[in-house]
């Protein structure tokens, strides 16, 4: 085979492998149910937060600020998406079938990561829009959505944060290989340990969850020793890269 033919073959291999991973994600029942549950939660929480805002319990009636609040809880859905994408390979030895089809481990893993990003970004965009939309619907004429550039920036930050967290979860689950322990570990960190540590230690601004708040939480970035949007994003990206590198190395070296 000449060089041109060889590189064409490599490109087709990569495209096929990526398409296969997208099909795997789309046909995973856990994945579909999690997406639907996350969206439903975004709408329900958007309504709940907006109702609380009308009663004057949140200190703001901006549809954007109130509507972004559900991101905090629906993050759980994205953690589960990342985990499911990794651990579904380890039930009943599917990973060996995958490796027979795509023997290059790094290629397989790269396809998985790209497929996860391609699927997660639209899910996250809908998640954020559903939350803000529900809040806007309840708040009605109280809603203030005038500043479109700020809205776009906050939505983009939230989508990036949700996607990066899904990638971190994917990386950790690739090392742990089991669903429940990974779910318990990551949810306990993001929902219990992280928020508690945030209140008591200054260094927590560099942890993935607190740094991530700088990316989307209204009025958080730049206050009170918190990182600004760019710093926060850089820290979360760095955490993602570190987690992903460890996962890749572990996947490359360990028995499948």
């Amino acid at each position: 085979m000449n060089t041109v033919g060889h590189s064409r073959y490599a490109v087709r291999m990569a495209a096929d492998s990526l398409r296969a991973e997208i099909i795997k994600l789309a046909t995973l029942p856990t994945f579909r149910l999690t997406v639907l549950g996350t969206w439903a939660a975004a709408v329900a929480l958007g309504v709940a937060f907006a109702s609380a805002a009308i009663h004057g319990q949140t200190g703001t009636t901006s549809a954007l600020d109130v509507g972004l609040d559900p991101v905090d809880q629906t993050l759980a859905g994205f953690i589960i998406l990342g985990i499911a994408a990794a651990t579904s390979e380890y039930n009943g030895g599917q990973i060996r079938t995958s490796l027979v089809s795509v023997p290059r481990r790094m290629q397989l893993q790269a396809s998985k990561v790209i497929a996860l990003v391609l699927v997660t970004v639209p899910v996250a965009i809908c998640d954020v829009i559903f939350g803000v939309g529900a809040a806007r619907g309840v708040l009605g004429r109280f809603a203030d959505l005038s500043d479109l550039s700020r809205a776009a920036q906050a939505v983009a930050g939230a989508v990036a944060y949700l996607t990066l967290t899904a990638l971190i979860s994917f990386a950790i689950a690739t090392v742990m290989r089991r669903t429940l322990p990974a779910v318990a570990t990551l949810l306990s960190y993001y929902f219990i340990v992280g928020p508690v540590v945030r209140d008591y230690t200054a260094l927590s601004i560099y942890l993935p969850d607190t740094a991530g708040r700088s990316m989307w939480f209204p009025g958080y970035s730049g206050t009170d020793g918190a990182l600004n949007v760019m710093q926060g994003s850089a820290v979360v990206v760095l955490w993602t890269l570190v987690a992903m590198t460890i996962a890749m190395m572990s996947f490359r070296c360990r028995d499948a």
Binding site: T179, V183, F191
Partner: peptide
């Protein structure tokens, strides 16, 4: 499967829980 109960209950053990927010409503 343990995923749903873990997600629901751990989320609701957080510093500000969903049920606490509901008491505001």
């Amino acid at each position: 499967s343990g995923i749903v109960p873990l997600a629901v209950l751990i989320l609701n053990t957080s510093v500000i829980t969903v049920t606490y927010l509901l008491t505001r409503v």
